[in-house]
Write a protein that binds this DNA or RNA. Structure first.
Length: 497
RNA sequence: GCGGCUAUAGUUCAGUUGGUUAGAACGCUUGAUUGUGGUUCAAGAGGUCGUGGGUUCGAGCCCCACUAGCCGCCCCA
């Protein structure tokens, strides 16, 4: 017997799974639509060259490539020319391709959402699969920070409506990162690699990051300055780790035999509002980058976002984090990520940013763009674990089950079912002339609230027996009355929940 | 890609220092109940013990490899 599991990292979705997925997707669509976003779908498969070179080195290796077909595959002489197509890796690059292709058919400002699976040849883990859905929203054609503000508001609203109360939207800016690295004296050509290492900071720790940076032949002075800055930010993010970090700081100073004075952190973060904390963060960044051009630009853009969003609920969930760096290489401005503050899930629920250069890679024209991507699977994993789904999702697929008495009466049962369906009820006919007991048992298993028995005596009198499976009550009623009974009950139980 | 743990019935798991015929619970099927589910009672079906090799008189148990799953790391939604 061949194995019945789906391929590694891929999943079958049973009806109960689909109901939960559709519940979440429904809310996402509703909110996106309410912000005026329009739906878009693109093919699962893209030309390989469309995808390569857009995601950085790590991303490139995770692309699922499709072998050439037939004769062409046999003719291919190397691994390199054996593949010309690939499964899409995200929804942003296909969008950029669509914009470059259909620019004239689309409005000047194009707001689109897209909810489709993407594929990555990654190692599966909790909340991480090889085939998974992303729910993207993007705004094409505007470089205004209004876009960022609206995206944050929309995504924040979705999470709230799903019942999340502990998320934080982290914001950073590519230019701030550039400004910091510049201020610290790291040469431009090292910036990308440095950011990759820096992104690991909270995973591998300060010492390991410092070591890796040194291996990249970045000067001790630069590394030390950089680490000090990062640590000063970390102190407010993870108060409980403050002591540990100070120890690391001391060790670092010892290790690099630095004479610079110990960072004096007189600001007590626990006593201040998120707003105040963000202000302090801005001050620190500004001070650190000595107000160089890049730092200035990044700060002013992030400040605009905060200003625009000030009257929205999500405002207090926004956290400026100059340590946030994201892997995808096409971001040019704002960088965004949503994380949960509780410790039960460490990955991000959503990520995004501004990519003003990506569309230009497909056409002559540079068009500014910015977007957010919600990770449906991660949202579902957390909601499942926290029991955040409404209980109606477990309800039955039908309102009433019609029994089958014997071979001769099958036609009558089907006719009755048709009559009930005319009344807009979801009706299931038991698919065999089984013993009544079996038919009731089945109805009970699949949670159908009513069973409509069409037996010998009912047929003779043109009546039906209607049984409420929850209460066990049953009565013999006029055939024409059955539908309205079920409907009344259905309305009552819906208004209760 | 790296490290650790695990793999026995449909599911969750027992299985003693290696010793005859591998168990339980739940689920499933059938019956008690030829016009009534959930409760109860009785019976029944279901296993090449992940795959392959090795040690041994003898392996579910010990050793090796492979595969898959879980956790951590890297990376990411």
């Amino acid at each position: 017997m061949s194995k019945t599991q789906p391929a590694r990292g891929m999943r079958d979705f049973l009806p109960a799974d689909i109901r939960r997925r559709e519940y979440v997707i429904g809310i996402i669509k509703e909110v996106y639509e309410s912000y005026g976003f329009e739906p878009l779908e693109t093919p699962a498969v893209e030309n390989l060259e469309t995808l390569t070179g857009k995601y950085g080195e790590e991303g490139n290796q995770l692309i699922y490539k499709i072998l050439k077909r037939g004769e062409k595959l046999e003719q291919s002489t190397s691994e390199k020319d054996s593949s010309d197509l690939a499964l899409r890796y995200d929804l942003t690059v296909p969008l950029a391709r669509v914009i470059a292709q259909h620019k004239n058919d689309l409005p000047k400002f194009f707001k689109r959402y897209q909810i489709q699976p993407v594929w990555r040849a990654d190692r599966p883990a909790r909340g991480r699969f090889r085939e998974f859905y992303q729910c993207d929203v993007d705004v094409i054609g505007s470089s205004s920070m209004i876009v960022e503000a609206e995206l944050c508001a929309a995504v924040g609203e979705i999470l709230l409506r799903l019942g999340f109360s502990d998320f934080v939207i982290k914001l950073n800016h590519k230019e701030i990162l550039t400004g910091i690295l510049k201020a610290v004296g790291i040469p431009t050509e090292q910036h990308i690699n440095t950011l990759v290492v820096l992104d690991k900071f909270d995973k591998i720790g300060a010492e390991a990051v410092a070591k890796e940076l040194q291996q990249m032949s970045i000067s001790v002075d630069s590394v030390l300055k950089l680490m000090k800055f990062i640590l000063s930010i970390y102190k407010r993010q993870k108060k409980d780790l403050k002591d540990r970090i100070e120890n690391i700081e001391l060790e670092l100073e010892k290790a690099y035999a630095s004479t610079s004075s110990k960072h004096n952190d007189e600001f007590n973060f626990t006593q201040h509002s998120p707003e105040k904390i963000n202000d302090i963060t801005f001050e620190r960044i500004a001070g650190f980058t000595s107000e160089n051009e890049e730092g200035e630009k990044g700060i002013s853009e992030l400040k605009k976002i905060l200003k625009f969003i000030k009257n929205q609920y999500v405002y207090k969930r926004i956290e400026i984090d100059p340590n946030l760096a994201r892997g995808l290489s096409y971001y040019t401005g704002t960088i965004m990520e949503i994380v949960l503050t509780s410790s039960d899930f460490s990955g991000s629920l959503a990520g995004g940013g501004r990519y003003d250069g990506l569309i230009g890679m497909f056409g002559k024209e540079q068009i500014p763009a910015c977007g957010f991507s919600l990770g449906l699977e991660r949202i579902l994993v957390v909601m499942e674990e926290r029991g955040m789904f409404p209980k109606e999702l477990g309800d039955s697929s039908a309102d009433v089950l019609v029994t089958v008495w014997n071979e001769d009466s099958i036609g009558e049962s089907l006719k009755l079912a048709g009559e009930l369906r005319q009344q807009k009820l979801r009706v299931l006919v038991y698919p065999e002339a089984d013993k009544l007991g079996k038919q009731f048992k089945y109805a009970s298993q699949i949670n159908v609230p009513f069973v409509c028995v069409l037996g010998e005596s009912e047929l003779a009198e043109n009546k039906v027996t209607l049984k409420n499976m929850e209460t066990g009550e049953q009565e013999i009623i006029e055939r024409a009355e059955a539908a309205s009974r079920v409907k009344i009950h259905k309305q009552n139980s819906q208004s209760k929940s």
